[in-house]
Design a binder for these strands. Structure first.
Lengths: 253, 253
DNA sequence: CGTAGAATTGACCGCGGTCAAGTCGCGTGG
DNA sequence: CCACGCGACTTGACCGCGGTCAATTCTACG
């Protein structure tokens, strides 16, 4: 039970990082980062984990393929792209990660990362080491389920993207992406209509499975229809409901 | 530590299911089902879990959307398809599961299944309940990592499919699928060249993100090239290396 | 200024979806 | 026994979406 001992200390008491105590309890992102039904006591126990903070500058990698897996990460500030490097050296983006979202869950499968995570702007992450994950697993019943939950969410997230790429036209895909970003911004208190895209068109087309020119064409198409106002990487959603209608067209056959 | 007590009993000793003792140790599928680096003692501890067996007949569901999540499953016999039901009532297949492979990991995200799993032929599964998963998490260090590992593998599996649908042509996708099945059959001691597809063309095209007619066309195309001999759902791979070359064409631009 | 990268726009065309007809195997019933 | 229907699969003709190639604009930066 020695691993549990650390849970019983008063948060922010006799540790060197006393000034950073109660990291999770005080974090404004905890509603996004953690499964919703976590009890307050459980969150307080998370504070006892001495979670490392790490800054990552724009265009720098948080991890790369074949890096040793040491931790999973939660974004505190900034935006990341994550994905996999194919054998032909081309990167395929499989996700964008806003503050409060997790990174590196695919690393849990083995000892080496098979993908990459890159900061799209100056960013900061919380790193939860493997040792700390083990502590979580040995913790109270409320905490034991945290890791499987988070990984389950990751699986679901991938399935959503899969469904997007399979059934939908390029226009529907871009609309779905914008609505998705809008909802995620809203979830963290940002405007659901004013979007500043941190990623390049190249990243976007890699993620959405289409060509750079097509992304461009679809932006202008949606703009022509009065759903968006696009100015480079700044996108203003004029008609959010109309955009949602684009995603699920009424197909009859 | 009470949850650990059951690990210390002798496998197959004083339990009602004595005749089924040492389920995992004696299972010929354990090399596929479990992470490879699991120690023999750890596998023996798994035997102490009273794992339920369950038969599922052809075309019957193992679980469906909105079913309560009670367990994850390992295929013992038969083949399953799994996927998600879209709001327009169409099913999208996201995976096929051969003996030794796991099912229902997406359910760990919440209390209700969001997808379905259906038997393609008469099948049998091992069901590992949530309570047993919790016991695993509290178990020895070797076992604590099992669940994150398996979920990590699931995430990776989805990423592979994602990459397949994104970058590849329909021809490359079908070739990749056949090579994948070939490798998985080989891993469980079956012939890597003689394949009997348990799934319909409709399931296949749903999985590969193309239309039924296109699947048919690609089968005949690969056959015309001398890579396959196709007879309904029986596929004989004539030139496995040639098939692998189809997957990764040398693109220069 | 000159150069490079990011983004947009246009012209062209091929892959793969759509529609339609045809084949094969199989169970059902007259 | 064949007729019939049904579902699974195949094959062919057509065409539209989106990829390819190329030119242009615009901003950033040295």
């Amino acid at each position: 039970m020695s691993t549990l001992a650390m849970f019983h200390q008063v948060p922010g008491s006799h540790t060197a990082e006393a000034t950073e105590g109660a990291l999770c309890t005080n974090c404004h992102l905890k509603g996004i980062c953690l499964p919703v039904d976590l009890k307050r006591q459980d969150v307080q126990r998370l504070d006892a984990l001495k979670i490392d903070r790490r800054r990552v500058k724009e265009r720098q990698h948080l991890y790369q393929p074949s890096d040793e897996v040491r931790a999973i990460f939660a974004v505190r500030r900034g935006t990341f792209k994550s994905g996999r490097r194919r054998q032909d050296e081309t990167d395929h983006v499989t996700g964008f990660h806003l503050p409060g979202e997790l990174l590196g869950l695919d690393g849990l499968a083995g000892h080496e990362h098979i993908g990459f995570a890159t900061a799209l702007d100056d960013a900061e992450v919380c790193a939860i080491s493997h040792a700390q994950l083990t502590d979580l697993a040995s913790g109270t019943p409320g905490l034991q389920r945290v890791i499987p939950r988070l990984l389950g969410r990751e699986v679901v997230r991938q399935q959503e993207l899969l469904a997007l790429l399979r059934g939908k036209s390029v226009e529907e895909r871009l609309a779905a992406f914008l609505v998705d970003i809008s909802l995620r911004q809203q979830a963290r208190g940002c405007s659901p209509t004013e979007i500043h895209l941190q990623m390049s068109r190249a990243d976007l087309c890699s993620y959405l499975g289409m060509k750079l020119e097509t992304v461009s064409r679809m932006f202008t198409l949606l703009q022509r229809r009065g759903l968006l106002v696009v100015d480079k990487r700044h996108v203003q959603i004029v008609d959010l409901e109309g955009l949602k209608l684009v995603i699920d067209p009424v197909r009859m056959h």
